[in-house]
Design a protein around this nucleic acid. Sequence first.
DNA 1: CCTTCGATCTTGACAGCGACAAGATCGCCT
DNA 2: AGGCGATCTTGTCGCTGTCAAGATCGAAGG
Lengths: 210, 210
Amino acid sequence: MAYHHGNLREALIERAAEVIAERGIEALSLRALARDLGVSHAAPSAHFPDRRALLCALAREGFRRSVDTMNAGAEAAGPDPVARYRALGRSYVQFARDNPSYFRAINHPEVEALQDDELQESRDAWVATLREGVEIAQAAGWHPEIDVETLLAFSCAGAMGAARLLTDSTWCSMFEVEDLDALADSVLDLVVHRSRTSVIPIPEDQRRVS
Amino acid sequence: MAYHHGNLREALIERAAEVIAERGIEALSLRALARDLGVSHAAPSAHFPDRRALLCALAREGFRRSVDTMNAGAEAAGPDPVARYRALGRSYVQFARDNPSYFRAINHPEVEALQDDELQESRDAWVATLREGVEIAQAAGWHPEIDVETLLAFSCAGAMGAARLLTDSTWCSMFEVEDLDALADSVLDLVVHRSRTSVIPIPEDQRRVS
DNA sequence: CCTTCGATCTTGACAGCGACAAGATCGCCT
DNA sequence: AGGCGATCTTGTCGCTGTCAAGATCGAAGG
């Protein structure tokens, strides 16, 4: 065994993601992480001064990956601005369900209370992604009567609320829906439901309302 | 000083709410709580077997109070079903902003992961309150074309997302809005914006879109 | 009255954790 | 060769949650 682990920082993040996905952020311990990786209890401190710093790194990675996922989803949605906007929200929810550890890190109160410039940059990038989608859709004639800031705030609230609802079995089980994916689509469809009146109509086969 | 505190259980909840409001759930410690109240470090265990049980009690109280606040808001909104529905969401956001400690307890992942029948009852009551508002509004002709489960899920996601956005300064500061209350109204207005096309139109002076 | 019993509170102890300090080991650069 | 910074180790501290065993109180019943 080498004295230097060699890649401890990334190994910590990777193992932390596993633990969080399995047992939640509350069960995350720097010492246990060090044990799992076969290093001494204080080794992580060389890379993360404290527990919060590790969670912060997780959250930053989560924001970065979710932005990538959202952009890829928008790209795959084709040229229609409203379809791209829809895809942004949909992709975020999908990311949240596929990556519970990053999603939990992003939304954990301990991380939220953290004042960190780099973390705030990551958050800004996430909002900017959504803002771009809103602005492009609006420029194409989507709800010109509504203030863009209001539309953006609504989009953020909708995406965050939907992701929260659909990643937590406690909440999901309260709705009489068998297919979780169908519910996800329905919620996100409603978020942009008003686009039915936009200059670019939603194709019939993409509507979820009957 | 009496050997028995006399009202330790409620005193613990009250003090815990203060600490959470000031420094967050992460800063909550049973021992510190006991010190603050002048009892021994293990006294709380007579009322709460572990830390989670205390948070669970906080969350239950939070659900109970928020339901009361929502119902009171709906009552004050008058007879119109859509106005009452609007008031439900609005009142919840107001409750979240007025009672950060209860709101944080409700939404903390440590509490969410908790499987507790009584807690689930409280959650059910909260959803039932929203469900009743949706059903009554729909019975009055509000969006008959949309499945009630979908409308409910959307209402939950909207209320939770809006409350989350508007109780966290980190997120609030990202929107170019000076007046937080105006943003809250705008977000919630958009949630029910589609009611413009309902059989019961929203009064002109209640619309936030220009 | 007084005894018993359950609820409540105390004292004591233990392991795990985050954090800090001091020192050891390694790769790298001059 | 030698220094230097990054990385890792060992040791320690106080704090926390949790458990166990015992003390105190109020109330209920003989």
